[in-house]
Design a protein around this nucleic acid. Structure first.
Length: 431
RNA sequence: GGAGAGGUGCCCGAGUGGUUUAAGGGAACGGUCUUGAAAACCGUCGUGCCAGCAAUGGUACCGAGGGUUCGAAUCCCUCCCUCUCCGCCA
């Protein structure tokens, strides 16, 4: 959520920002509730001051009837004020949480994802002297994907992945973990991109795949209608990314400055309802209710968070280059970056059979929007306390497998394994 | 899932209704002393919110949320978590 003091002083800018991001919210209403809440808070504080005063005059255990009467009267007043305060505060927080994070001035203004701006195109698109197949056509002949039986078991948008496709996927996780855990490689990426951040390696994490309502809400990522699955009979939601369970790890904690940056690379199975996408990407494994994912998450101070975001994008590009996949980098527009984001970058991979670039990676620059709700703070060397900043970004999902299959297919229907993955596949050159 | 015991600050730990403004110890930080260090001694040492230019004042927070009371860390209820034993289990 946003800082209420910032909203008070920049109401017009906050309203305009919400409009640009496509959120129908009223800053004036937030400010009205803020004012109401503060007035009630003031009244409550004054009544409590009197109550505490009376109480301190009665210490010693011999209550004077007149003071007790006065206390009773105060109690009635306070009960009424506190009831109003509680209601006003709840409404205020509810309204406040609806306001989207401020987009950086550099974020392109747009009303749909079509207005995202391509800032880089990297790699050569493959040339085929035969008609390239879709990933699901290739997978069919290899018996890699069984969606018919998965539908029988779990419904549409689920799949059994089988055979060498599974081995290829496991290789991808290994490769990603190895790059993110290698300080020398990170230092090279940092140097090549002119960044000045630490080369501290990412710590591998396997997080819980579920989170409580309050925790999920604090991340700003709970999206009941379209995305998030709820467990029946439990106050638990299935995560749609390891981000959702790693970002709140340090809730209610004050981190020591010298522990930063905290860098995590989490592996989890992600679950997404995908409501409202009926018929979209119905074939193959491009859009499933369940998929595996490797995700970066980091906690930094405000001073280094933007560079941290740029590092994550640089890592994503490095990974795609190592795999030899052609891709483009997009600066996401205001309508597409999402409510908690101040900035967002997507990477889209070239899919020859679809004759288009499709999203494989996202990098989210969140600033303090999550940590304000999560109360994750940093204690500086001089003793001052400030909100931490979070960043998250995709390392790999299963979508790069689609890109590998389609870009590296041969006339005979085999797939050439990217060199960097071969060590994890016993040196095999094709699958 | 059953039975029992617990949850207090960075850590340990005292506190069972009224100067708790949370004792005491440790750690940390600053200082005195010392050639330097250790020891000793002195001091500092939680996080929000509101008002204020500030100094400061008020208020809240002892796992979470309710309740009882003039007054709750303390009593009651619900929930969460930890530990011990039992049961079940990859």
């Amino acid at each position: 959520m946003l800082d209420i003091r910032y909203i008070r002083e920049n109401a017009a800018a906050v309203q305009e920002n919400a409009r640009r991001k496509g959120y129908d919210v009223s800053v004036d209403e937030v400010l009205r509730w803020d004012k109401t809440k503060r007035q009630l808070q003031q009244q409550a504080d004054e009544l409590r001051e009197k109550r505490n005063d009376i109480s301190s005059r009665m210490k010693g255990g011999k209550p004077e009837p007149s003071l007790v009467e006065e206390g009773k009267a105060l109690k009635d007043q306070l009960t009424a004020v506190e009831a109003n305060l509680k209601e006003a505060d709840a409404t205020f927080i509810e309204q406040l949480k609806k306001l989207p994070n401020m987009a950086l001035p550099t974020v392109p203004v747009g009303t749909t994802e079509d207005e995202n701006v391509v800032i880089r195109t990297v790699g050569e698109k493959p040339q085929f002297d035969f008609e390239p197949k879709n990933h699901w056509e290739l997978a069919e002949t290899k018996d890699w994907i069984d969606k018919a039986r998965a539908a029988k078991i779990a419904g549409a948008r689920f799949a059994y992945l089988k055979g060498d496709l599974v081995r290829l996927e496991l290789a991808l996780w290994q490769f990603g973990m190895d790059v993110l855990g290698n300080e020398a490689i990170l230092q090279k990426i940092i140097d090549d991109n002119g960044l000045k951040v630490s080369a501290k390696p990412f710590t591998p994490v396997i997080p819980p795949a579920v989170a409580r309502t309050a925790v999920f809400q604090a991340t700003g990522r709970l999206n009941k209608e379209e995305q998030t699955y709820k467990l029946e009979d439990e106050d638990l939601w299935l995560n749609a990314s390891a981000e959702h369970t790693m970002a709140p790890m340090y809730m209610d904690e004050i981190l020591a400055e010298d522990s930063l940056p905290i860098r995590l690379v989490g592996y989890t199975t992600a679950f997404r309802r995908e409501a409202g996408t009926y018929g979209k990407d119905a074939e193959g494994i491009f859009r499933l209710h369940q998929f595996n994912k490797l995700e970066m998450e980091s906690f930094t101070g405000a001073d280094t968070s933007l560079e941290e975001h740029l590092l994550m994008v640089a890592i994503q590009e490095y990974l795609m280059q190592q795999l030899g996949l052609p891709y483009q980098v997009l600066e996401k527009c205001t309508a597409d970056i999402g409510r908690p984001n101040a900035k967002g970058v997507d990477i889209e991979v070239w899919l020859p059979a679809q004759n288009s670039y499709r999203e494989t990676h996202t990098a989210d620059y969140i600033t303090d929007f999550q940590t304000r709700a999560m109360k994750t703070r940093v204690r500086r060397g001089n003793g001052s306390v400030e909100l931490a900043h979070t960043n998250d970004a995709t390392v790999f999902s299963e979508r790069p497998l689609i890109a590998i299959i389609e870009n590296f297919q041969t006339a005979s229907g085999d797939v050439i394994v990217p060199e960097v993955l071969r060590p994890y596949l016993g040196g095999r050159e094709t699958v």
